[in-house]
Amino acid sequence: MKKIYFFTVLFTLLINSNLSAQGMTEAGSLGVGAQFNSLFYGLSAKYNFTEIHSGEIVVGGGNYGFGGDFSSFTVTGRYLYNFDIGNENLRPYVFGQVGFWTLKFDGFNILGVSTPEVKETSISYGFGGGAEYAFSGLEQLGFNIEIGYGGGSFGNGLGYSGMIFGAGFHYYFNL
């Protein structure tokens, strides 16, 4: 919970700082926001190296579908290749991603039978495509949706793979 407060304060300070807002398609802009995906979610920073090439880091947790008392941590790096279609408010892209994920499941007790604590790590992968959109007059605020395929393995037969669906938002600053 402390992490959420920290990043909320950091995001608020960035918005209220002297950094000027910049359109989402411009080279040299930094987008700060959140990315939600069917496999992971978290706070995100996206940097446009050029108008075509972008990089993104997402730090957060994972959606593994387990009930009970579990915790997770994910760090995912993404490369985005953006297509220039002549519209500054719409930017389609393809992406590739690699991540490091952890999972801690505290176990449970059913009818007097206890399961042990589980701690696993995984290297994840994914690829797909999507589009980012900004409303006219708000070119510095981008909303994205995407679809792709991803997966990985925690070992001991515990793996995951399949279609991924995602959405996110970023507020862009001029560095």
Rank of each mutant, 00 (worst) to 15 (best):
M24P: 02
N48I: 03
F95V: 11
S71D: 14
G68N: 11
S38N: 03
F154G: 06
N48Y: 05
L90T: 15
S71H: 14
G60V: 02
N174G: 13
F83C: 08
G28H: 07
G33R: 00
I4H: 02
A134P: 01
V75D: 11
G28E: 07
L111E: 13
M163Q: 09
N16W: 12
K46I: 13
G152W: 07
S44G: 03
F95Q: 09
F143P: 05
V59Q: 03
G155L: 12
G126C: 07
T12W: 07
T74N: 08
E132Y: 02
M24V: 00
T74E: 00
S17H: 05
M1T: 10
S114H: 06
G96W: 00
I145S: 12
L158A: 14
Y149H: 10
T76M: 03
S114W: 01
F40N: 04
G148R: 05
S20Q: 14
G68H: 08
H170L: 00
L30Q: 05
Y171C: 03
L19A: 13
G130D: 07
D106T: 05
V113Q: 10
I110N: 11
N82T: 06
N144C: 00
E132R: 14
G86H: 15
S72K: 03
S72N: 06
E139P: 07
I4K: 00
